[in-house]
Design a binder for these strands. Structure first.
Lengths: 205, 205
DNA sequence: TTGATATTCAATAGACCACTTGATAGTTTG
DNA sequence: CAAACTATCAAGTGGTCTATTGAATATCAA
C-alpha cells in the first residue's frame, strides 16, 4: 500500500477521488494524463486497496476506499504540510493572502442558530456527490452573478475541497470586496465527512 | 513524503523507530541490512520529514518525527490491514491463535481500581524510551523465570509493540498455561502514546 | 596525533517504474 | 449486428530507485 503514495500522479488521483467518484476518462482529463496511464495508476491504487471500482454502463467509476483510505491520505497530506517547510511555503504561495477562518465547532453553533449561511464553492458534481448538511451549492465561477441569492444581513461561510484548495479563499475575498461579511471554513468536505461519519469498527487484528 | 513508504526496508525502519529512537548501527543490526544502506534510507526518511536525527557522541540517534509522522505510519498500517485481505491473513498466521483482549478504556478503569497488573513485554530499551504509565517491564524472554514477581490473585495485562506484534500474544499464552488470568491490551505503546499525548496544534494552512 | 568506531558519500550494476503506442475487450446505441 | 465509446492490456523505452562496494568524514579516547 505504501507504494500507492510514491507517484505524484497517483496522489493527484487520490486527491480528486477524495472529493467525488469519477470515471477514468474524467480523471484523465482532470489531470492531463493519457487514459491508459491513468487506468494503470488506478489499477495500482486498486491493488493497494486505496480505491474501489464499479462498472457503470460504458464507463468505470472509481472511488476512494472508505474511511480508512481517506484517513491515510489526509494524514499524509497534513503531516507533509506540517513537517516539510517546502510544502508549507508552496501552499502559502498558492493560496494567496489568508482570509478569516471559522472552525468546525463554531460553524455548527452558528448554523444551529440560523446565524450564518454556508456555501459550497466546489464544482457542482462534487457537491452532488456529497456535501455538508445545510450547505448551498454556489460554484466559484458562478459566485459573482449569484451574489443576490445570498442574504446581506447574515455572515457567509464558504468551504471547498480542503485547507489547500484555493476556492474558498478566493470566494471570501470576492465576497468581502462586495461588502459582505464572509469567512472560510478551515477544512473541506473530506475532512468534515471523516470527522462526522461514525467510526464503524476498530482495528483489532 | 509519499515515497518514504515505498520501500519495505523503510517501513521496517519506521516501525522500529515508532518504538524507540535508535542509532544507525542498531537499526542495521535489527533489520539485517548493511550500515550504508540503512544510512541512505534514513536520509530519505529524514528528507521526507518522517524522522529526526541528533548526533550523540560518536553515533547518530534517529527518531520518528513527532505525532504527525507517527499518525501517518499507524494510519497506513491499519488501513492496509483493514483493506488488504492478504495483509490481514499474514498477520493472523504470524500472530497465532488469538488470545483474550482488553481495550484501552477498560484497562484504565481496572488500573485505577488497582485491579490489574500491567506488564510491558518489549525489550528493555524500548520500555526505557517510553511506556504506559504504571506498567512494569518484563521482557518476553524473562517472563518464565520472573513469574513469581506477579501476584497470583490479580489479572495480568500484557502489551507490546502494537496489534501486529506477537510478544503480547505469546506472553498471555505462557501466563495462561502457568495458570494465571491474563489478557493482552489490544494496542501497543505507539498507539497509546498517540491517543494520550495532547494534540499540540491543528493544521490550519 | 593516532587509532578506533560510527556514519556518510560516491560510483555502479541491476531491478523496477512511468509513460507511450497500438491493439483488444466490454457496453451501449443506432 | 455494427458503430461508437470507454477502459484495459501488452510491449517497449527512458528514467529512477535499491543495494553494494570502497573511500571519506566525524567524534572520541588514548
Amino acid at each position: 500500500m505504501g507504494k500507492a503514495f510514491a507517484s505524484p500522479v497517483r496522489l493527484e488521483l487520490l486527491d480528486l477521488l477524495a472529493q467525488a467518484p469519477r470515471s477514468v476518462d474524467a480523471l484523465a482529463r482532470a489531470t492531463g494524463q493519457s487514459n491508459a496511464n491513468v487506468s494503470q495508476h488506478l489499477q495500482a491504487l486498486h491493488a493497494a486497496g486505496m480505491v474501489t471500482r464499479r462498472r457503470q454502463g460504458t464507463s468505470v467509476r472509481y472511488d476512494i476506499a472508505g474511511r480508512e483510505a481517506l484517513g491515510v491520505w489526509l494524514a499524509l497530506r497534513d503531516a507533509s504540510a506540517g513537517r516539510l517547510a517546502e510544502v508549507e511555503r508552496a501552499a502559502r504561495d498558492y493560496l494567496g493572502e489568508d482570509v478569516q477562518r471559522i472552525g468546525r465547532d463554531e460553524l455548527r453553533e452558528r448554523l444551529a442558530r440560523g446565524d450564518a449561511v454556508l456555501i459550497d464553492v466546489r464544482p457542482q458534481e462534487e457537491y452532488a456527490a456529497g456535501h455538508i448538511e445545510g450547505a448551498r451549492s454556489i460554484p466559484l465561477d458562478e459566485l459573482d452573478r449569484r451574489l443576490a441569492e445570498l442574504p446581506a444581513d447574515r455572515e457567509i461561510v464558504a468551504y471547498c475541497r480542503g485547507p489547500f484548495c484555493a476556492f474558498a479563499h478566493e470566494a471570501v475575498r470576492r465576497l468581502a470586496s462586495a461588502g459582505r461579511a464572509a469567512r472560510r471554513l478551515d477544512e473541506g468536505w473530506p475532512e468534515w465527512q471523516l470527522a462526522n461519519e461514525p467510526a464503524r469498527k476498530r482495528i483489532t487484528a
